Simulated scan of single mutants.
Amino acid sequence: MSAAIDETMGEPVTVTPIIKGKPNFPGTPEPDKAVTVIAVFMAKAETTLKSAGRVAGGIELSPLISTRKPVFEFDRNALPWPILQGYRVQLCRTGEVFEVTDIKPDSVARICVHVVQLGRAKE
């Protein structure tokens, strides 16, 4: 089933491991160990509550904001090593780079990798 998901919705991504840095400092990417694999990318749109309604220039501002939660899903055997927090994932299609924040198995054959985008989103 996992192979069918990759065939239908997958796209190439490059995963780059990092060397852990000092506490509160980013790690150093290891581009010589980067691998290109197939993953499913999803960026689910979400509306969240920012704060109570505010007034600016006599106009009441909405407390709701739109955001997205980017997630990559990999086949459990796609990577030659376990993916860890802080690793970088780059979409080959757009060049956008993401940093891994959380890794969770889906209890079947895939790994769900939560990420945050580094830099600005391309539209």
Rank of each mutant, 00 (worst) to 15 (best):
E96Q: 15
P31N: 06
I83M: 04
V35D: 14
G58E: 12
K22Y: 08
I103H: 03
A121C: 05
A109S: 15
T8L: 13
T101F: 09
P31I: 14
R76C: 04
L118K: 08
Q117C: 03
L91N: 02
P12L: 11
M1K: 08
I111M: 12
A39R: 00
L79C: 05
D75H: 15
N24G: 08
I111E: 13
E60Q: 10
P26G: 07
A34D: 10
K50D: 07
E123C: 05
P12W: 01
R110G: 06
P29T: 00
K122Q: 08
W81S: 04
I19M: 08
K69F: 08
S66H: 09
P23G: 14
V113N: 00
P70V: 10
C92M: 13
E99S: 11
A3G: 08
V100G: 02
P26Q: 06
K20R: 08
K50Q: 10
T36N: 12
K20E: 02
E73K: 08
E46G: 03
G53I: 06
P23R: 14
D106Q: 04
V71H: 01
E7Y: 09
E30R: 14
E99T: 07
L61G: 07
I83N: 01
K104A: 12
R110C: 14
P29D: 07
I111D: 15
A43P: 00
K104D: 15
V13C: 04
T47Y: 04
V35Y: 09
I83C: 07
Y87N: 04
R68E: 07
V113G: 00
K69Y: 02
T8Y: 03
A52D: 14
K122L: 07
V71A: 06
I5D: 06
P105V: 12
D102L: 14
I5W: 03
P17G: 04
G86R: 02
E96P: 00
T16G: 12
G119M: 06
V100E: 02
L84C: 14
G119A: 11
G10V: 01
V115F: 06
L84A: 11
F41M: 12
S51I: 03
E99H: 02
K22W: 07
Q117I: 09
G95V: 05
K69H: 11
R88K: 06
A34H: 03
H114Q: 11
S107V: 13
T94G: 02
S51D: 14
D75C: 05
P70S: 15
D102Y: 13
G53D: 10
D6N: 10
P23C: 09
G53S: 05
T28L: 15
V40M: 03
R68N: 14
A78P: 00
P26W: 11
G58I: 13
A43D: 11
S66I: 08
A56Y: 10
A78E: 15
V55D: 04
V15K: 02
P17H: 04
P17E: 06
N77F: 13
K69C: 13
Q85E: 11
K104C: 11
C92T: 12
L79P: 00
I83F: 03
M9R: 10
D75G: 10
V115S: 01
K33I: 00
R54C: 07
K122D: 09
